[in-house]
Simulated scan of single mutants.
Amino acid sequence: MRHTMTIPPENRLAGLSSEDVLIVSFPKTGSTFTRFVFANVVYLLNKNSEPVDFYNLGQIMPECLKDNLIDFCWKGDPLPRLVKTHQLAEDNPLYAQPKALYVLRDPRDTMISFYYYASKRKKGRYEGTFDEFVEHSTFGIDAYNKHIESWYSKASWVFDYETLMQDPLASFLRVFDDLGIKIQRELVQKALLFSQPDKLKAAEREKSRPNHSVNFDEDFTFVRNASVAQWKEKMSPEQATYIWDRSSAILKARYERD
């Protein structure tokens, strides 16, 4: 699929085409799993390509404002080009043009996973407590609420991480159907098998991640337990209640309080 759309100079950092599909999420809500599934579909469609790992994931599926999208060679036909972003919708005018798949997650689990990630980074490490992290204007619950409210009404598809873990096949087949792309069910099933958390953990152990030792503490693992409702064991009832009470109405509508 060719991407010949003329990019206005003010948008060259993005380089998006109206044909692209964005994979959008707030950090630590499930975009890695989602990207691996689509990347494994690309791998299976191109039998001569390398198996997907953390080193070539970005070569298969680029990230907006990080990779050169204008010159990026997409090898995933018949899929449209899939582009990752964590940015807010209003950060770039072109974000309103492509279709977007938005992944969200229980806010309590999101705060736990993002705090672990931020506190293990060497550059820009978060040094505060978990409670302080929840209040942080860039990382915490208000930032998550803002991100959801930025994208929720604009996305063509919205999936929660929990459903992607419990019934991923139906979710991904729905996207392909809506795009008018005929993908064999068995191929998607195989891509899902290749993308299961235990497979991603093994890939991370075998090859680590690009610049892992430079960017993160030695004991850091990007793929942890990929669990649902980990907050029930990892935080106090008071912390869980506080995060829930601070969460957006959109999140509350999708997650009934336990």
Rank of each mutant, 00 (worst) to 15 (best):
L169M: 12
V175R: 10
F36M: 08
V21R: 00
F33H: 10
A240C: 01
L187I: 13
A155W: 02
K84L: 04
D160A: 08
A229S: 09
P197D: 13
D67R: 11
L94P: 01
V134T: 08
V52M: 04
V83Q: 07
F216R: 12
L88W: 08
P237Y: 03
I60G: 00
V175C: 05
F114S: 02
I183T: 13
P210G: 06
P62E: 15
E19S: 08
Q97H: 07
Y95R: 04
S248N: 01
K122M: 04
L251I: 09
Q230F: 11
A14F: 13
Q189Y: 00
H147W: 03
S18W: 03
G58F: 11
V37R: 14
Y152C: 01
L193I: 08
S18H: 10
L251M: 14
M165S: 15
K252S: 05
M235C: 01
Y102C: 13
F139A: 13
Y152H: 04
L16N: 06
V83E: 10
S31L: 12
L251R: 02
E186H: 01
A96V: 07
S208Q: 05
T4I: 06
D167F: 03
V134C: 09
E204Y: 07
F54K: 07
L94R: 10
L251S: 06
V228Y: 04
F194M: 15
L44W: 01
M235H: 02
G140F: 08
P98E: 15
E204W: 02
E149M: 09
N56R: 03
F159Q: 07
H3G: 06
E149K: 07
D91N: 13
D77I: 13
Q196H: 15
D71A: 15
K66P: 00
P237R: 14
L179V: 01
Q87T: 04
R35D: 01
K234D: 12
K99E: 04
A226C: 14
S18Y: 06
L16E: 11
E90K: 10
V103E: 03
Y116I: 02
T4W: 01
I23L: 15
Q166F: 07
F172K: 06
V24W: 06
K122C: 09
L82I: 10
N48M: 04
E127A: 14
L193P: 00
A226L: 10
V21P: 00
L193H: 05
L251Q: 05
I243V: 04
Y152S: 01
I243T: 07
W74H: 14
S18K: 06
L57I: 11
L200T: 09
D245M: 11
G140Q: 08
D167Y: 02
I23D: 14
S31R: 06
F139R: 13
D71R: 15
G30I: 04
W151V: 08
V24K: 06
Y126L: 13
P237Q: 11
L22C: 09
E238G: 02
C73Y: 05
P98F: 01
Q230T: 14
S248D: 03
Y117T: 00
H86F: 03
I243D: 12
Y255S: 05
F130T: 09
S113A: 12
K28G: 03
H147Q: 14
E233S: 14
N211T: 07
K154A: 11
E10T: 01
